[in-house]
Design a protein around this nucleic acid. Structure first.
Lengths: 161, 161
DNA sequence: GTTGTCGTCATCCTTTCGCATGATTTTTTG
DNA sequence: CAAAAAATCATGCGAAAGGATGACGACAAC
């Protein structure tokens, strides 16, 4: 990475030189303009690098803080819904709010277990197209574009274990 | 590396083209020197930021690994209750037993959140092909054929929240 | 009886995934 | 430093998934 900066500097210098050369071919402007432009370029390049470093550094700090926090706090679950912790029950109300049918949720749970559409079709004795249709509708109601996203949403909403 | 220089060359070419363009307008408009300088400044600042991001990118992964190592939380916990967000304790020992690298797990966690390969690539500033490669390796190590299956396995093994 | 919902199935088409393979570069480690 | 490991990128292909749309039968509700 040190080489990055080095090459950047060299190429930047060459670029500026070329810049000035072309500037010279267009003999219209005064000398101060070239110098001014080069200075501006260097200044902003330096500033850009500094800013880039600055940005990523703060991001690192944030990430680390988050991780540590997650480690130290064992149960910060918002726990939506007044439901018992042990089994898995509270799907129906939220499911119906979203208009997701029982069949769709059934397919969704199989999707969450990692089955392909074909496997699900075989397992439920229906055609693959039917599975696709159920999936599409469930995805639409969940606002998901992919099955992984649908699974994630389903878990967030307490529809899936 | 070669690519960096290439990109820089392209940017340089664009810069010079812009230079000539502004040069042309300079004959007509008096105040185009400022415009020209501003363009140079923006370009170099952008490049600098990009470079800064690229340089410090690797540090994040390292830091994450270190933090993860300090965690001592044991098992996976099938997560009782509705939305039971486990305190995210990435099991490093199990991860290393399977030979899954930190980067692969990072990609896997984004997969679990429902992102597409392209989205992941954009987020991590890498190409989609790279994401695919990481995915393929992680899937292989997890014995998964699909990404949903990989996510399921990852959660079972306590690698994912 | 008409209406509406649900489950089922299909076809066409596009996008995304997954897999294999090879290569280069960067980072870590001995 | 040299070797090993990890990360990166590319390409090509076949399979899977997803979107759009239309259709049909069962069944309950109005």
């Amino acid at each position: 990475m040190k080489r990055h900066v080095l090459i950047f500097g060299v190429v930047g210098g060459l670029l500026i030189a070329t810049l000035q050369y072309t500037e010279y071919r267009f003999v219209i402007i005064e000398h101060s303009v070239e110098l001014y432009s080069a200075l501006v370029a260097i200044l902003f390049a330096t500033f850009g690098i500094w800013l880039g470093l600055r940005i990523t550094r703060s991001r690192e700090t944030i990430r680390e803080t988050v991780v540590v926090k997650e480690v130290l706090v064992p149960a910060e679950a918002p726990a939506p819904g007044p439901t018992a912790p042990a089994p898995f029950a509270p799907n129906t109300s939220r499911r119906q709010t979203l208009g997701i049918t029982a069949r769709e949720l059934e397919i969704l749970s199989l999707v969450a277990r990692g089955y392909s559409n074909r496997e699900i079709a075989t397992q439920l004795f229906v055609s693959e197209n039917t599975v696709k249709t159920h999936c599409a509708r469930a995805f639409d109601k969940l606002g998901a574009a992919r099955r992984t996203q649908a699974v994630q949403r389903g878990k967030e909403l307490g529809l899936l274990p």
